[in-house]
Nucleic acid binder design. Structure first.
Lengths: 199, 199
DNA sequence: GCGGAAAAAGCACGACCGTCCTATGAAGTG
DNA sequence: CACTTCATAGGACGGTCGTGCTTTTTCCGC
């Protein structure tokens, strides 16, 4: 029971990378098998269905995201530094070679937003956790006195997410070389507004 | 040459609606034909290829968007009222029955961001025009004295777009009932920041 | 090294895909 | 009304899709 789990892991790694390029729907069993040098049926045996593959791909991507973005930020000082670290980590994540096709969650969000099922449920849960994480970081920043008392931390998390979506759009679709600079400016404005009491 | 163009138009209408649900890739010739009660080959004859269909769907959607969002806003007073009208029209657009599957441009952006070709080119041009339209409205608001002199109008357009992307994400994927309220609050903050000189 | 278990391959299935070719029907023109 | 042009239907093609069988190969504990 060791060799199996190893290839299982390898499959998911490649699948995440491939899905970032072609999407969760576009990720085909046959194509994935060929990329790995496996037979279609041999690969299929690891997942009972394509839906299960999609779910596991999303879970694997979430795990990588947590490892690469969330965990490093938790090492930073509580409050605004950590909020900024989360944002910086996010920008880095989008630059990762693992995701040549752009953030897999953004792609999946567009594909699954009207497709009820286990894959959608998994994605929504993952996104909810991430938004909660962002809100919690902002909440701590309020407690530390970095952000104003009355700040709506859920709104802050929502706005922060919107900035990232704008960044992704500008960079990946529009190929705007200023995408990152624009995103940083937008985020700085958000943080500045969180400082001043009731702007 | 009359009957043909009529059905051509009918096909595109249905195609836009269908594509908003299943995406541009998911839009299949056979499925579209069945929805319309046409034969697959009869429908295919109107477009030389699937790519051409996708391009025309995007063009048709752009035309509708211009008609429903841009044109009404041009009837509003120059400056901030028009900027706000564009935003309001945008929110309304997303509520339109024509787009039960969510804004077709958002879906297409995720699908095409790594798929070079005529469809991508058409989408990028459409988005560029729209961003230019938003920036121009902001520029007028500066000229009218509503927004501060030094405002970076391209950044403003970019940020406005980001707010809409955040709205779409919150509403369609997360099913957040507060999505619209959040979007309005974010946009108001953007406008407020455009008022004050160098925040 | 052997034998049982796990992993991968081979193969076939029905369904749907985009595309093309050909025939038939209807629309428009003289 | 005849004739041409155009719009649609029918059918077939090579492919790929997800998914099940059965067989073969590989791994691992004794």
């Amino acid at each position: 029971m060791r060799k199996g789990e190893l290839t299982h892991q390898t499959i998911l790694e490649t699948a995440v990378r491939l899905a970032s390029r072609v999407g969760l729907q576009g990720l085909s069993i046959g194509g994935l098998a060929e990329e790995l040098g496996l037979s279609k049926s041999g690969l299929f045996a690891h997942f009972k269905s394509k839906t299960e593959l999609q779910v596991q791909v999303l879970e694997a991507a979430t795990a990588v995201f947590t490892e690469r973005v969330v965990r490093p930020a938790l090492g930073k000082a509580r409050g605004e530094p950590r909020v900024r670290a989360l944002f910086d980590g996010w920008l880095t994540w989008d630059r990762d070679k693992l995701l040549e096709g752009g953030c897999i969650f953004v792609a999946a969000a567009a594909e699954l937003d009207d497709a009820p099922g286990p894959a959608r449920d998994t994605l929504v849960q993952s996104q909810r956790d991430w938004l909660d994480c962002l809100a919690q970081a902002a909440r701590i920043a309020v407690a530390e006195g970095h952000f104003r008392e009355a700040l709506d931390v859920e709104q802050f998390a929502h706005d922060q997410y919107a900035v990232m979506l704008g960044f992704h759009h500008a960079k990946r679709l529009m190929r705007d070389p200023q995408a990152e600079a624009r995103a940083r400016r937008a985020f700085d404005a958000l943080v500045a507004a969180a400082h001043t009491p009731t702007s």
